[in-house]
Amino acid sequence: MSFVLVATVGGLTSVGIYLITSRSLGRIILGFALLGHAAVLALLASSGPAGSPPIAGTERSISNPLPQALALTAIVISFGLTLFLLALARRQHVLTGDDLVEDDLEDRRIARYDDSPDTSIERATR
């Protein structure tokens, strides 16, 4: 059981990291959604083995509630931030017509000081 949980965390994390290295904000948002799930699952996994539901009168051991409280807080925060990122992507779409992350002009100006022909900065621009 725990192995399945850990494997899921690993899978979600790797896909999430792959997605946020992309230049498209849409993919980045999806990546963060997956990473957020992975983090929440990791928090749950940290609480140890599952227990029975916390009903008064039952004698059996209940599962540790603290990581669940932490996970809930984390879910709420990541939900709000996903919405903010979506708003940002929408604004970018209105301004430029796509949702790609742009280069920094000042960085490119500095990079031009290096006039070796192999500078990949120019090629990276669309």
Partner: peptide, 14 residues
Amino acid sequence: LASTLFLFGLAIVY
């Protein structure tokens, strides 16, 4: 990204 890593860190510490 740093915040997400923070969450993972909390899970590890816990």
